[in-house]
Design a protein around this nucleic acid. Sequence first.
DNA 1: CAGAATCCTGTGAGATACTG
DNA 2: CAGTATCTCACAGGATTCTG
Lengths: 144, 144
Amino acid sequence: MTQRPTRPRPRPGSRHPARARLTDGHLANVYSAACPSRQALDRIADKWTVLIIGALERGPLRFGQLRDAIDGISEKMLTQTLRSLERDGLVARQDHGTTPPQVDYRLTALGTTLAAPVAAVRAWAERYIVEVEDARTAHDLGQG
Amino acid sequence: MTQRPTRPRPRPGSRHPARARLTDGHLANVYSAACPSRQALDRIADKWTVLIIGALERGPLRFGQLRDAIDGISEKMLTQTLRSLERDGLVARQDHGTTPPQVDYRLTALGTTLAAPVAAVRAWAERYIVEVEDARTAHDLGQG
DNA sequence: CAGAATCCTGTGAGATACTG
DNA sequence: CAGTATCTCACAGGATTCTG
């Protein structure tokens, strides 16, 4: 999904071996893959994560409701992503212990803080999708 | 990366066949995978996309500068993602036609509108990474 | 330098079946 | 209902080499 804990570690014998310098502060916005906030980004910048956070924005939902709300997600990915979000303290899982089982998911306080940025991205997508599509068809026409 | 044009199309014979209803407006934030803004999201919610947009935020960069600025990206993924961004009208490529070749990339006007939301997400990551890590270790300790 | 072309592998992710 | 367990495979994506 996104957690790739056993990332093969960029082999030292690579062709672009770190490329060390960056002598001046010219490229200040460099942050290494090891940088914690980069890892957080890697986690957040994920399709299903964004969609789940978005779906939970308005309140708790049950497993099945999430599955239905997020078109195209498989139960497997839903479960996996929810587990990750739970682990990262963004989503809380509440099992009511009833039978048939009833479990719901809600954003934690931390998760709520993420909802705003995510909503901004979604808003962008909704606002500018037309421009993107236009650019795309224009580009494709140009290329044949 | 994100473009998976030949996605095997969620087979109609699937076990959760659309699940049709959603009778009431209860889950208003459902948008199907076919919905355009969903597709835009699928494109945007990508690790490399976010990082490239972020890197170009402050001004044009050349290919090598981007490669160096974005730790962990391979030349292949950089090229691919740049091509996609170009196609979507978010990034403009300028080839100076010199030898040795010199090409630089900059955000288009459209791309610039995306920089803000993306920056918000990055800001979130930087601000809350600690909480996420804490939650994670707490959770992992709880589970053994 | 900025890529294109190739080869190869890990894993993201769907399909299916089983269970309390 | 809310999962878990498997099997499977396409493809994302890294490594490497080549070129104008």
